[in-house]
């Protein structure tokens, strides 16, 4: 493989990881003004801010961060389907956080030790993500092992999002990671938390028949277009505006 091929792969990986962080950051930001309690609103906004910071570093490895965030079409985004899913009720947001934070934590832990262009960011971000994962775990335990209502909702959320979790382990060229080992560790972490929360680990498939790995190829689920419209419309309506 030539140096140029390697550079192309690294850039593609940076775009995928950057888009994951950017899109989830935007979804979490949608809770502002709507969270169940003020403390939780602040927590979700802080997690969103961490993710936005990570996205900025990653997208800057690819090109101009603003152009990439605001001027790309849906088909050019390389994020996972999981992170673009609508917030749903609070349980859905927490289930999404649990699945993604567990994945991101394991992935960045590996990148932090790999000595690549991603190492400085991963070393820093993995500590932030540890807090995100802890936040999701605590809430999964509270809701899963809480009232009948919260248990039912948390179970429904995990069941609904399960089919988006397989895509995370599709290898990203440019990252030298043992993806099977990552998947095994993720499964152990997540099923451990679900079990402790008295929830049932879903038995359904982790990918839809039609959707396997599609987010990484630029094919997205329907809600993503609407999210992108909201995220981009101000920038596109007023090109070059500043205040």
């Amino acid at each position: 493989m030539t140096q140029t091929d390697r550079q192309t792969q690294t850039t593609a990986a940076a775009l995928a990881l950057g888009d994951d962080a950017l899109v989830l950051s935007h979804r979490l930001g949608e809770w502002i003004g709507h969270a169940p309690v003020l403390e939780e609103e602040v927590a979700l906004a802080n997690i969103a801010l961490d993710l936005l910071g990570q996205a900025r570093v990653l997208l800057s490895l690819v090109g101009d961060e603003d152009e990439l965030a605001y001027l790309r079409e849906e088909r050019s985004f390389r994020n996972l389907h999981l992170v673009e899913q609508p917030n749903g009720d609070f349980a859905h947001t927490i289930a999404r956080q649990l699945c993604f934070s567990a994945y991101q934590h394991l992935l960045y832990e590996r990148l932090a030790h790999a000595d690549t262009v991603f190492t400085p960011l991963a070393t820093k971000a993995v500590k932030e993500i540890a807090y995100h994962l802890d936040h999701a775990r605590q809430w999964t335990l509270r809701l899963g092992d809480g009232t009948d209502e919260s248990h039912t909702r948390m179970q429904n959320a995990v069941d609904a999002l399960w089919r988006f979790t397989g895509e995370m382990f599709q290898p990203l060229p440019g990252l030298t990671i043992d993806w099977q080992d990552l998947r095994d560790s993720w499964t152990k972490t997540v099923t451990g938390v679900l079990g402790e929360a008295t929830l049932t680990v879903p038995t359904g498939p982790q990918t839809g028949a039609w959707s396997a790995g599609a987010g990484r190829q630029g094919l997205h689920t329907e809600p993503f277009g609407r999210m992108l419209a909201e995220m981009q419309h101000l920038h596109r309506s007023h090109p070059g505006a500043s205040w």
């Binding site: 403390e39 602040v42 927590a43 802080n46 997690i47 801010l49 807090y131 802890d134 936040h135 605590q138």
Partner: peptide, 12 residues
């Protein structure tokens, strides 16, 4: 009270 507070670096 909350593991995230007025800024990302603080807990309440």
């Amino acid at each position: 009270l909350s593991r995230f507070s007025s800024t990302a670096c603080k807990a309440l």
